[in-house]
Design a protein around this nucleic acid. Sequence first.
RNA 1: GGCGGGGUGGGUGAGUGGCUAAUACCAGCAGACUGUAAAUCUGCCGCCGAGAGGCUUCGUAGGUUCGAAUCCUACCCCCGCCA
Length: 414
Amino acid sequence: MGETTAVEDYGRLLRRGVVEIIVEEELVKLLESGRKLRLKQGFDPSRPDIHLGHVVGLRKLRQFQELGHQLILIVGDWTAQIGDPSGESATRPMLSAEEVRANAETYMKQFFKVVDQEKTKVVWQSEWFGKFTLADVIALTSKFTVAQMLQRDDFAKRYALGRPIAITEFLYPLLQAYDSVVIEADVEFGGTDQKFNCLVGRELQQMVGQPPQQVFLMPLLVGTDGSQKMSKSLENYIAVDEPPSEMYGKVMSIPDDLMMDYFELLTDVPDKELEEFRAELDSQSVNPMVLKKRLAREIVAEFHDEQAANEAEVAFERQVQRRELPEEIPALRVGDAWWGRDETAIERSWDLVYLLCEAKLSKSRSEAKRLIAQGAVEIDGKKVTGDRVPLEEIHDGSVIRVGKRRFVKIGKAD
RNA sequence: GGCGGGGUGGGUGAGUGGCUAAUACCAGCAGACUGUAAAUCUGCCGCCGAGAGGCUUCGUAGGUUCGAAUCCUACCCCCGCCA
C-alpha cells in the first residue's frame, strides 16, 4: 500500500479524536525516525472496570501499535492508593495486595479487548516504588513547588474556593511523572484532564537528563446522560464487558447530539462517511435513529461480534420499538399454594403487589402499588388496573411486564 | 493554640419549634407522544396499610417541649481562616 497509506495513517493518528499534542513537531519527528517508540499508559487498579470513555484512549494506543510501537502498561499499584485528584477525592481505603492483583487482572482482560497484548509490556509501579525510601520521596518532592502544583486547574479551583486538597494529592502527579522517567517514555497518553500530570512527567524527565515525552491528549467522552464526562461514579457509562443487548440499548439512549462524537471516537467508520452523516443530519434527510442504530451496531460488534450486534438490534426493535416480548424471559416459579388452593383461594384472586415483589419487579410493596396505579403493569399484554387479579387471568406461562424492560414469566413450581 | 463554618432523603442543596415525609434541582421510575431506552409533555419518586391512617428518617446519644431537622447538653466526624 506504500506511502499514501503512511500519510493517511498519520492523518488519522494525529487528527481524529485528538485534542492536543505536545509537542506535535517533535512527535512527528519521532514517528518519522523509524524508531520503535515507547508508549506509556498507566492505570490504577482501584477500579477495574473499563468503559467507553477509556476506550477512546485505548483505540489510539492500538493505532500506534499498528505502526509497530511498543506499549508499556503501568499498573499503578501505588497511585491507586492515593486516588487521582479529580474533585472531592474521598480518601480511598487501602487495597490489599490481593485485591490489587485481582483488579489488575480484571482490568487487563478488558484492556486487551482493544489493545494488542503482543505489543504490550506490563510493569508494576511497586517494581520501583516498592524500594523507595523516605529520602527518595523527599528528593522527588523537593523538585517541585506548591505554586507549580497550583497551576493545575483542579487544584487552583479548589484552593480558590477554600476546598480541601490533600497533600497526597500533590504526590499523585509526581509519582506519575516518575513512572515516565523509569520507563523512559517517549509518548504519554491521556484524556484532557491528564494534561497537568503528563506535563510534570516532561519536566521531571528533563531534570534527570532524559528527552521529554510527548503528550497526547484526547477528548473526554460525554456519558449517556449527555452532559457530564463518562464515569463510573456518575452512572452514565457503558462498560466494555456489558452484554450485547445492554450495550446496544445504552448506546441508543445517548442524546442525538452525541452521536457523531461517538462515531468519531469509538468507531473506525471513515471520516468521509462521517461527513456524509453530518450532512444528512443537518439537512434532516435521515432519521437520526437510523444512524444511531448503525453506531450501536458498530460498538457492539467491536466488543462482541457482528452476529451479537445484529441480534441485539433485532431484540431492540422487537422489545423497545414494537414493545413485543423478548426471547428470553426470566421465570418465577410459583408454588401450589399460589395457584389458588390455599389462602388465595378464599379471595379467588392473586395478590399482584406481592407477586411483583416476589418477582423482583419491584423493590417494595409501595412501589409495586405505584406502578400498578400508573398503568405500568400488564399481564399477557393486558393492562392491569387493580392490585387484585382474578385467578384465571394468570396461568402457567403467563408473562407479567412492568414498564418497557422488566418481565417475568410465571411457572408452576416443581 | 485561637476563631469560625458545617454534617438533611441516591447526589447537590433549602429549611432555624407546629402549615415538614421535609422546598428546589439532578438522577431514577412510569405514562403519553414519537423518529430511539433521543427530545418533549405529564405523573410518581421512605416503609407498612385496601383505606382511614400508622411507623421510621434530617451525624450519634440524651434532654427541654403538648409538639423538634429546627432549642439545650455531651460526643463523633468534616472543612476553612489566623497563628
